[in-house]
């Protein structure tokens, strides 16, 4: 299949330009240094990579410019006019793909934390004996699981965003968190219900009340059992976060699209974007696997 693909791409005559990709992660930006007056270069001191250029104006003012040696454009005694370049300073700047990756990362992280909290509270309501709480949580779970995330994001952005005047980023994070919360709630419910009844009874018989028994006995055990499905949920969340690009949040996916409009390196960029998502999700899996090993000591 790989060979087939290779032949097919040969046929469509696509020029691969992988060498263009790195600059969208990190690039060297030149800040041009220009003289603010007419004058003459009085001295040039080369200090390795840096160079100090001194310029004296017609009425005797002296001004020093520190620039990178490689960009030096003048010689001693050159006459300069207002706005002429002396040289430039170079700075490393994060490119759009790096910024997009970062946005996706923190967006998913914040949404995960809120999703976990919402899911935990809803999951507890779901198993509680209070009928109202139970029905409300079931309603929430059903509504969220029964509608597409994309539609939820639009509702959050266009409807709730307008009514409550919330920014696109808050709308995006809320939509993701509330979406994840519904799934987390079901995972937590299943986890709690998988703990043998005897655990709660033993805790109660020792005089612990229900919240204490939950905190010390049931939830720690349920957490251990729900770690694999929770991990899957949060990995999904990272991937689903690409949908917020539709409400113009510059996450990894949107950055990729923007880079494509200026480079036309469509194939390379999408492969790169896919790899970056893979990087995020596999790092998360590794972290979770490590936590799982840590928790396995009591087995």
């Amino acid at each position: 299949m790989a060979a087939g693909l290779w032949i097919a791409t040969k046929k469509i005559d696509y020029t691969w330009r992988w060498n263009r990709i790195p600059q969208y992660f990190l690039y060297h930006q030149e800040d041009l240094q220009t003289v603010p007056f007419d004058g003459r270069v009085s001295r040039i001191d080369k200090l390795g990579d840096k160079t100090i250029v001194s310029v004296i104006s017609e009425n005797g003012d002296e001004k020093n410019f520190e620039i990178d040696t490689a960009t030096l454009q003048v010689d001693v005694d050159d006459e300069l006019l207002v706005g002429d370049e002396v040289g430039a300073t170079l700075h490393w700047r994060a490119g759009p793909l790096t910024l997009g990756l970062w946005t996706t990362l923190w967006l998913s992280a914040v949404a995960s934390v809120f999703g976990m909290v919402i899911g935990l509270v809803t999951g507890l309501c779901r198993v509680s004996n209070n009928i109202t709480l139970k029905q409300l949580s079931i309603f929430y779970i059903e509504v969220i699981r029964g509608t597409p995330l994309l539609v939820q994001i639009f509702i959050f952005y266009f409807f709730l965003g307008t009514v409550f005047d919330i920014s696109r980023i808050v709308a995006g994070i809320s939509a993701l968190a509330i979406f994840a919360g519904a799934y987390v709630a079901e995972i937590i419910r299943a986890g709690i219900q998988s703990i043998p009844k005897g655990q709660m009874e033993a805790a109660r018989s020792l005089g612990l009340n229900v919240p204490q028994a939950m905190i010390h006995i049931i939830l720690p055990q349920a957490f251990k059992r729900t770690l694999p499905p929770l991990a899957g949920q949060f990995i999904s969340l990272i991937k689903d976060s690409s949908l917020v690009s539709v409400i113009a949040i510059t996450d990894l996916t949107k950055s990729g699209r923007e880079v494509i409009t200026s480079t036309f390196a469509t194939f390379e960029i999408w492969f790169t974007v896919a790899l970056l998502y893979l990087l995020l999700t596999s790092v998360l899996s590794q972290v979770i696997a490590w936590v799982e090993r840590r928790l396995a000591v009591s087995d």
Binding site: S205, L206, G207, Q221
Partner: peptide
């Protein structure tokens, strides 16, 4: 809860807390 702390119970299936060591099982409550 106030009554239960005065009434100890031992179950057929032990119902120890599996995620806690023996010592932790006994000091928790």
């Amino acid at each position: 809860n106030l009554v239960r702390r005065e009434v100890g119970m031992v179950f057929q299936q032990f119902n120890l807390f599996p995620h806690k060591t023996v010592l932790e099982n006994i000091i928790l409550a």
